[in-house]
Structure formats: C-alpha cells, structure tokens
C-alpha cells in the first residue's frame, strides 16, 4: 500500500532535517567553557525593536568566535515578561539576555516580581539616543511648537511610544517637566514595540512619536515622518540636521543603554569567560561595522564597574518614575 511506504520516507526526511538543524553547528575554536553547547540569546521584545536588533547583531558578530548562537524573542511589558522567563534559566551559562534602561524602568513601573537581581550583569554594550518625531503632515515644525501645545493643553498632546515605563515614556515625562507641564499628566500611549508605535504615528492619530534613533532613521530619510529633536548631548553624525533638545531650550538628555546579562547562580569562572567572550566580540570588525551602520554609541563596560552602573541607573530611574506617578 502506498501510504505505508510514504510514512517511513516522511519520518526519514524529518529525522534528517532535524539532525542537520540541531547537530550541524560549526564547532567553534574557543568555547571550552560551553562544552560545545550553543549560546541562546533572548531578545525580550518583539522582532524589529532595539533589543532585537542588538541580539541579532551580536549573533552575527559572535558567529566567528563562538559558533552559531540562537536568538529568540519573548515580547512584552518592557522586557519583564522575558525577564520572568529568563529567571528560570538559573545557573545555566549558555543563556544570555539583552537588557537595558527600558527594563530597569519597567521593573519599577510594573512592580515586577522578578528583578535584575535574578541575573548576573555581564556588560553594557551600546547607547542609543531617543528621537522625537511628528507625522510629515503635522503643523508642528520644532520642539518649541510642541512645547507650546503641551503648555496649552497637555492631555491633547499624545505621545506614541514603546512599553509603559520604558525609555520613551520616561523621556515624555522629562520633556513635560522641562517645559513646565505636569509629568504625571502626560498622555502617553504604550505599544509593545517600536514597529507598532510607528504604525500608530504613521496613521496620523498621535501628535508625536518617541523612539530610538535607530528604529526611526529609515522613515526619517524616506520623509514619512519628521524628526524635531534628539536626546543626545550633541547632534548625531548620522542625522546632522536634527537639533538636540538642549539647543531648542529644553534641558533634557537621555541615553538609552543596552547591555547583556546571564542568569543568576552561574560560576565565577563562567562569568569571567562570558565577559571575555563579549569584550572579544566588541572588538570584531563585524561589531565595529554594526555600531557605525546602526548609529549606536560604543559603551562597553564590564565587571564591577557595570554592576555599579546598573545600581545607579536603578536609583535614577526610580526617582523619575516616582515623580511621574508611575512607581
């Protein structure tokens, strides 16, 4: 009977495929501490956003020095959903997760049961600045225009951005405070990622969009949205025409840093080995090229210095969020 013949065939094809998929990784030169196992990188956000980009760029930069790594996305709630899942990998040095300012804020504002204490901070990698945009058809030309509208009727000015309590939300609060409006009354509409927020902005329903520079660059170049300010201390080389907030008389500066953590409970030797691997990765040509292409600032920081940095960020972010009535 024909069917009986095809079943073993299908099974054989599947088995072969699974073997190729799972077993065919190129053996890497120096992954002794991994014992030949594959690193898994979690991007705690949906595909397309800053964390996802970081994870995927790391994946390609790591290919030559640690073999193939797997990137998986766990989206939502400023990365705290990913964090709660990541905490379950306790003691497993093959699991890494991208983190950053957004997660620090989300842990506070979501009152997350799992905090960064459930991780081993390894390294800070990049800083990305935030950009304020309006739809191309908007009458708003610059930050003073927007500030005037915010002073006139704060609730009528809606900001579309990433998850509640994230870098974008914090920035909206800081801008409100700097222009003399109440940060707790900002009309901020949260989305689960930069792509979704962009869709709402493009529909023309939101007054302004707040997002990472790298997430909006393509749209700004294409002219579908207009950038009216950037949160960096100086203008950025990639977008020299966009003035900083400070230039326009709004005293706000915010760096959205991103870094990498391992689960808590890994051995000191594994921690050192992972840190060394990441520092080595930041020196590769692939990673250097990535920083230029994405417009990310190099902010490599490891060891106790990074631990201290994370603690001070937690303090700063908590202060801002309390002022905004979010924590």
């Amino acid at each position: 009977m024909r069917v009986r013949d095809t079943v073993p065939f299908v099974a054989a094809v599947v088995a072969t495929v699974l073997l190729v998929v799972t077993g065919g990784g190129d053996p890497a030169a120096d992954d002794d501490f991994l014992g030949g196992r594959q690193l898994r990188l979690m991007a705690p956000a949906s595909p397309g956003g800053g964390w996802d980009q970081t994870a995927r760029e790391m994946q390609s930069a790591l290919r030559d020095i640690a073999g193939r790594t797997e990137v998986h996305n766990v989206a939502g709630a400023g990365g705290t959903i990913g964090l709660s899942q990541f905490a379950r990998y306790r003691g497993d040095p093959t699991q890494l997760m991208v983190t950053g300012l957004v997660m620090v804020g989300a842990i506070e504002s979501n009152d997350s049961p799992v905090t960064l204490a459930a991780t081993t901070p390894l390294a800070r990698l990049t800083t990305d600045y935030e950009i304020l945009t309006v739809p191309a058809a908007s009458p708003i030309q610059n930050l003073p225009d927007l500030a005037a509208q915010m002073r006139a009727d704060l609730r009528a000015v809606s900001f579309a951005g990433g998850s509640a309590g994230g870098a974008e939300h914090i920035l909206a609060g800081l801008i409100a405070e700097a222009v003399g409006a109440d940060p707790a009354r900002v009309n901020y509409v949260a989305h689960s990622g930069g792509g979704e927020a962009l869709a709402t902005l493009l529909s023309g329903r939101a007054t302004a969009g707040v997002s990472g520079v790298s997430e909006m660059e393509a749209q700004i170049e294409a002219g579908t949205i207009r950038a009216i300010g950037v949160s960096s201390p100086q203008r950025l080389p990639g977008i020299p025409d966009v003035p900083t907030f400070k230039e326009q008389g709004v005293d706000v500066e915010l760096a959205n840093w991103r870094g990498i953590v391992a689960p808590a409970g890994i051995s000191a030797a594994d921690e050192t080995a992972l840190e060394e691997l990441i520092v080595k990765m930041t020196g590769t040509d692939t990673w250097r090229e990535t920083l230029t292409r994405r417009g990310w600032g190099d902010a490599t920081l490891t060891g106790p210095a990074f631990d201290t940095f994370v603690r001070s960020e937690q303090q700063t972010v908590t202060d801002v969020l309390v002022k905004m009535g979010l924590a």
């Binding site: 939502g76 709630a77 400023g78 705290t80 959903i81 799992v114 998850s163 509640a164 949260a190 989305h191």
Partner: peptide
C-alpha cells in the same frame, strides 16, 4: 491572560509566573 501591554498590569495569571507571558 498575561501582562497588559498598555499598563503593564498582570491579568488572569492566578499568580503563576509562566502565565505572565500569555
């Protein structure tokens, strides 16, 4: 089920962490 995107509040999770992600 899971964390609400707009406010970050967990819903219908009955305190089970694995339900937080929906």
């Amino acid at each position: 089920v899971g964390i609400d995107t707009l406010t970050g509040q967990p819903r219908l999770d009955f305190g089970v962490p694995s339900l937080l992600d929906g």
